[in-house]
Design a protein around this nucleic acid. Sequence first.
RNA 1: GUUCCUGUGGACGAAUUGGUUAAGUCACUGCUCUUUCACAGCAGAGAUUACGGGUUCGAGCCCCGUCGGGAAUACCA
Length: 516
Amino acid sequence: MNDKIRLRFAPSPTGPLHIGGVRTALYNYLFVKKMGGTLILRIEDTDQERYVSGAESYIIESLQWLGMNFDEGPEIGGDFGPYRQSERKSLYGKYAQHLIDNGYAYYAFDTAEELTAIRKEYESRKETFRYDGITRQQLKNSLTLSAEEVEVILASGAPYTIRLKIPRDEEVLINDIVRGEVVFQTNELDDKIMLKGDGMPTYHLANIVDDHLMKISHVVRGEEWLPSTAHHILLYRFLGWEDTMPQFAHLPLILRPNGKGKLSKRDGAKFGIPVFPISWEGENPEDSFEGFREFGFMPEAVLNFLAFLGWNPGTEQEIFSLSELAEAFTLDRISKAGARFDFEKASWFNQQYLIQTDNAELGKLLKPFAKEKGYEVSDEYLTAVAGMMKERVNALPEVIETGYYFFEPIREYEEKMIRKKWNPDRKAALLALNEQLENLPDYQAEKLETSTKEYLEANSLGFGDVFPFYRIALSGTTKGPALFEMMEALGTAEVKKRLLTAFPAFDEVFAKKINS
RNA sequence: GUUCCUGUGGACGAAUUGGUUAAGUCACUGCUCUUUCACAGCAGAGAUUACGGGUUCGAGCCCCGUCGGGAAUACCA
């Protein structure tokens, strides 16, 4: 165990965990496993207005389903808790005070309404307002007001915020593991709020304080944080923690399937694809989503797919178990450009996992999907169906959908082949063959095949004379699993029944053909 | 608008870090196998490495500019 390597995944419980967040969690997880470090789950719930109950348990359930285990966290415990920022509220004040006392921050008394009014005014002039080293001189804060005035306001109990006092004319250098050196000019930075009017810290303060207190060694997070990293570095400096500052790695964005913009929650519905790990019940239908799990994806496949969205091992291997990923993973092979979310590729990964998964296991996974459709069948039967169908589908529900004929009567017979080759005279041969097969001591795929071959030979018939019709009678389509395997699964009685129901339908097609 | 990030076939992306013929996978097309579909195997098509300059014996890789894409710009994270 390397106790110097400590990473955290720090989602905020404002809704379901989006697939980009899952990838961030995954990269944190992989690096920790690779290095033998510690992985921490920290809930960043400093915004009570956007807080959504159930989001935290959703996050934990998702992570569990995916098989990513954490070493420290709200439910798990650990020596650096509590792991919810709301429960750490009392901690942050003294650091904000430290900033004030050392001249790195100041009190600001502008109300939210006043600020939005100013922003609007700037906007009407096609400018963007920024609370910074220039504009703060015109605003209501402890830098412009006299010490006495500030005393009075503070004593009155009126709400205030604490803002970071960004120095003028300096450069802040970020040394990012994936981006290299990035330089920001402090004159371009705004005086970000550290402590909000309600006494809660903002992300920026809480994040830095907690990362320091929790001895975080590496911050692996999304690219959207890169612009505020300069503020974070300044904070480490002002708090006197610069020498133990974590290393940063900013992950590339995940882009929408059409390449325009970053993948968002609503893209799931828009493109008919999952963008969440598991389903989420929102307050109304448009806030509810199905996840990869409900789409019938295997967690290993989702992880494997996600791992390759912005990273690759540099070898030709593509199928990796979670532990193999951890073994191969390095931060420096993370790519810089945003990666497009390609659902077809995700499906391919899933199919690969489906194929390599044991049939009995798949049968078990299939059960809830079968139940949903009202199919009550044995585990053995589901296992057999899974075995026959897994190479032919991308996701589990498809087994039930395209293989519906394993569970209910044929809905429709594919007419093309019937029209082309069917002749009512063939009934006799099919029936005779079927009778021969029914009387076999063992109604099993291989036996059925040899027996059929014997029959065909004895009656000088070809495969094409009986096969297509047998197949259509049993499944309604010319596509699908091997015929004899289907027969074995269906059983003699069902096969016979399907044959007899099919014949009138075939004849009808034949009659239509003659009459036209 | 401003700041920052980014740009290799349709998609993901490789290229011993400046060394000559730009991998591989997904998707697409064809062939083989197969009673069908799929899987698998083989083959094919698809790229002036966004564009323009520069440095160099040599540039996908370094520098400058242009253009495109993205993110940030909240008392949200």
